[in-house]
Amino acid sequence: MEGMDAIEVEGLRRRYEAADGGTRRGNGGSQGGFEAVRDVSFSVREGEIFALLGTNGAGKTSTVEVLEGLARPTAGTVRVLGFDPFTERSYVRPRTGVMLQEGGFPSELTVEETATMWAGVTSEARPPREALEIVGLGARTQVRVKQLSGGERRRLDLALALIGRPEVLFLDEPTTGMDPEGRRDTAELVRQLRAEGTTVLLTTHYLEEAEQLADRLAIMQAGRIVGSGTPEQVVAERPSRITFRLPPGTEARELPLTVQAAVEGRRVSVRTHDLQPVLTELLVWAREAGVTLENLQARSASLEEAFLEIAQAGNRRDGEPKGSKGPKGPKGPRRNAWTGAKA
């Protein structure tokens, strides 16, 4: 626990009004509106990279927008560098950099004009060209924004977020739409910023990215945090997995396994916390029986598996106990919180 918290979130709730008042339309539930963030608490230490994960509509962007000071919390408190980002915005803004999920730039300005404008509204801004070069747009300064590719737009957005040398950086899905090289460059940049002391809060769809970058992360599901810790901690409790095809003429019960296996047709899937001994057991048996295990795969748990599992468990937990909510929609983690498409 060295250093202080750059970001503190305590009991945050955010509700979108049903009809007019809110920024987005709700699902017309019994209380009207839609509660996108439901009692979320976490903190990010100074100099840390913190990743917020979740499926679409989990509430990541709704949470980040409150931290960015774009919206007032419905309930709970939020502090960025010790200040309320909404009511004390003039104290917070000069020290933060923001990359929204979708950049907002006039399409008829050139890249350089956009950066110049942004530098003009930022105190102690670095020269626009320097910011553009940092993100690899140095050769595209005279191009109109409307002619940029999706990945280039994200780079431009990143350049603007960095232009004021922020102490705290909010990156809402920074690499969506970038090609693999762009994603690698961005990851490299974020690491370097951390090395220089910047605090980074990022949301992402790419779990490997979170796994590689984040010091700590939280998984959101239906407006709540359903799992958090270092990537190692989150993954550690998850079992490894072995899969293969059942050899012809072999029945599932003949398998030598001491752990439970799930058989689906001819496909066998084993989940274990002791990958090596179980795998050894299996391979020795296969050699002695003289059979080939087709499509054999063995892998440790990844953040992706952990994520899917936690998210699905969160779904189940979230669905049942609240009778007032009515029936759940035809499921899947893709439920859209913005349109409130629930049933």
């Binding site: 100099g47 560098l81 200040f83 003039s90 104290y91 000069p94 020290r95 105190s123 102690e124 070069e133 940092i134 993100v135 690899g136 747009l137 140095g138 050769a139 595209r140 280039e152 780079r155 960095l162 040398r165 922020p166 102490e167 090289e181 762009g182 690698r184 460059d185 490299e188 940049l189 370097q192 910023l193 220089e196 002391g197 910047t198």
Partner: peptide
């Protein structure tokens, strides 16, 4: 784009040093 364009220069020179009073504000 060319990744070697400058992604490796020092980005945030003042990152750690800046814990003083709020700028502007």
């Amino acid at each position: 784009m060319d990744g070697g364009e400058g992604m490796s220069t020092t980005i945030n020179d003042g990152g750690t040093a800046r814990t003083g009073p709020p700028r502007d504000g």
